[in-house]
């Protein structure tokens, strides 16, 4: 069959809402788009461990500490799971991580913002995980099977995280004056970046149309953004907090994307440092495995 016929059959399967599996034929563009999106998603989970990890040692109660530790651990698990799903498309996790460390792969810009107060941990759970869920629930029906299945599992945990984040905000909103100020400050800091998580306006979104046709994406950026706002505004009212007034500063969005956000450099450096500092450990594990594999071979022979 020629490529045009294969493509036609592929699109027909997509249109019939069939799932594409790793061994199925797929257009190169589809494969590349998925690798890009899934790797970005995996990287975001890994880099996303950093701003929240910033508060593990300082969580204000032991219960909050345990919840936060488990949450950051879940993110690591999501990363591992997503790298695994991406590997079904013929790339290796090691190569993807090299790209992240080299600065050539993208991850969600939201994690380039700092978490100066405990309330930022609440705001991340409430707003950032809330926005992530809006983006990710449609992905549970995405046309690529391994990605869709990974997202089902991830979304369950994300909605748990979102409630935990809101619960932190609730405790602060019902707390002392200083705690309420802390909560409002975090909402002010995270509101616009959270709205930017849905990506550029539809008119400027370069990947959207093809992704919609391939059913990797099912709603436009602006549709999801509007839905998020509708959900979140009453939640803020319930907390007695004010949603910032104004409009999205798309210049800020592009600058952070370009690497000029408040923590871009720190986040990448933290990942590079962990990777470099762990080099001797990974080498030792490989050397040990190699030694004992050959020992086993000799013994067997």
């Amino acid at each position: 069959m020629d490529t045009a016929a294969l493509e036609e059959r592929f699109q027909a399967r997509i249109d019939a809402d069939e799932r594409i599996e790793p061994k199925d034929w797929m257009p190169d563009g589809y494969r590349r788009a998925l690798i890009r999106q899934m790797a970005q998603h995996a990287h975001s989970e890994i880099v996303g461990m950093l701003p929240e990890g910033n508060w593990i040692t300082r969580a204000p109660t032991l219960k909050r500490k345990a919840i936060l530790m488990a949450k950051v651990q879940d993110e690591g698990g999501h990363g591992a799971y997503l790298y695994g799903a991406t590997e079904t498309l013929g790339v290796t996790r090691a190569a993807l991580i090299e790209e992240l460390l080299a600065g050539s792969a993208k991850y969600s810009s939201i994690f380039n913002y700092p978490t100066p107060t405990w309330a930022d941990i609440g705001a991340i759970g409430w707003l950032v995980d809330g926005a992530a869920i809006m983006n990710q629930i449609p992905l549970c029906r995405c046309s690529y099977g391994p990605y869709a299945r990974a997202m089902v599992r991830i979304c369950k945990e994300e909605s748990f995280h979102q409630r935990q984040g809101y619960d932190i905000m609730l405790a602060l909103a019902r707390g002392t004056e200083a705690q309420r100020r802390m909560a409002q400050g975090a909402l002010d800091r995270w509101w616009w970046p959270a709205l930017m998580m849905f990506g550029p306006p539809d008119a400027e979104s370069k990947h959207s149309a093809q992704s919609m046709r391939w059913k990797v994406k099912r709603f436009t950026n602006d549709e999801l953004r509007e839905r998020f706002i509708e959900f979140t505004v009453p939640q803020a009212e319930y907390l007695g907090l004010s949603i910032p007034q104004g409009t999205i500063d798309w210049n800020e969005f592009h600058e952070v994307l370009r690497g000029n956000g408040p923590c871009n450099r720190e986040r990448l450096e933290a990942r590079r440092r962990a990777h470099q500092n762990g080099g001797w450990v990974r080498e030792a594990a490989l050397a040990y495995a190699e030694k004992h594999r050959s020992g086993y071979r000799e013994a067997v022979q």
């Binding site: 990890g53 593990i56 530790m69 651990q73 690591g76 698990g77 500092n277 450990v281």
Partner: peptide
């Protein structure tokens, strides 16, 4: 807990977090 996000490999982030969570649970 200081390690989480900074371990030599993702599996070790998860492994150290597991131990930390167990110990914290016992401590509580």
């Amino acid at each position: 807990g200081e390690w989480i996000g900074h371990a030599p490999a993702l599996e070790e982030d998860l492994g150290l977090a597991n131990t930390a969570l167990d110990l914290l649970g016992q401590a509580r």
